[in-house]
Amino acid sequence: MLTLKGIINGERTLPYLLLAPLLLLLFTVILFPFLWNFYISLFDLKTTNLLTGAPFTGLSNYLKLFHDPTFFHSLGVSVYFVIGSLLGQFGLGVILALILHYHPGPARFFRVVFIVPWILSALIIGYSWIWMYNYQGGMINSILRTVGLQPVHWLNNMRMALWALVIANIWRGTPFTMLFVEAGLKTIPSEPYEAARVDGATSWQSFWYITVPLLRPTLTINLILTTMWTFNLFDTILVMTRGGPANATLTTAMYMYKSAFEYGLLSYGAAIAIVMLAINALLAVLYFYTVGRQK
């Protein structure tokens, strides 16, 4: 006979009961907005028909999206932005983490210094970099002039603007990777290294055959998070270039923002958000199956 006491005492049901509040919370703050967003994307909701009602259009927003050259352009921009940022953030972050891990003395001081960009607001970062990139009085161009080089139109130039954003984003995101990887390094026990040393392994071999495999789960999670954050990033871009010049820095996230909140095309913006979510999910799966695979 099914009784409340029986359910609570039951070994099978108890875990679910304990998880229920958290699942409810997750549904409310994650799953429901996602489902609602998907629902909206099936209509033609605009700021001009919020009151009068939007017609149901099925998947037409998605079809329109796949015929929209600006969307594909934004995807291309995002690919460059994500790859450039990841290479910089990941490479620098791992190097800094190794330096801090193997030099614990100065690490305390430098850890604090390096973390500053991560704790700053995206708007402050954006405005700071605008000033650093300023053609006439910016710090970067001043340095270039000092060493006898020509100043660069960092944010005006269609070729340079995206890379200027990548550099700013690397500066902002590197501390996270550094801290994350350093924390991962601290979890690796010393025994495998001692055994390797006894077997005559070189430092490089210890790093490649012990550190890297044992860090793999950490690196995978880090890559997934930084990829998603970079792909979804729009606040710094909004401040620095608003997607310009001539859409040269119009990432997919920026295009989603513009579609929904500047053009008032709410359903179209929602459709872009769903496609972005699918891309993020696909990337996460790819990372788990490739980088994160345990040998």
């Binding site: 130039n157 269609m158 310009g244 001539a246 859409n247 053009y263 008032g264």
Partner: peptide, 18 residues
């Protein structure tokens, strides 16, 4: 209007910067 304005501005940027 915002979409139209963006398209015109894009043309200005292409002509001036590119």
């Amino acid at each position: 209007w915002n979409q139209v304005a963006d398209a015109v501005f894009e043309a200005m940027q292409k002509a001036i910067f590119q």
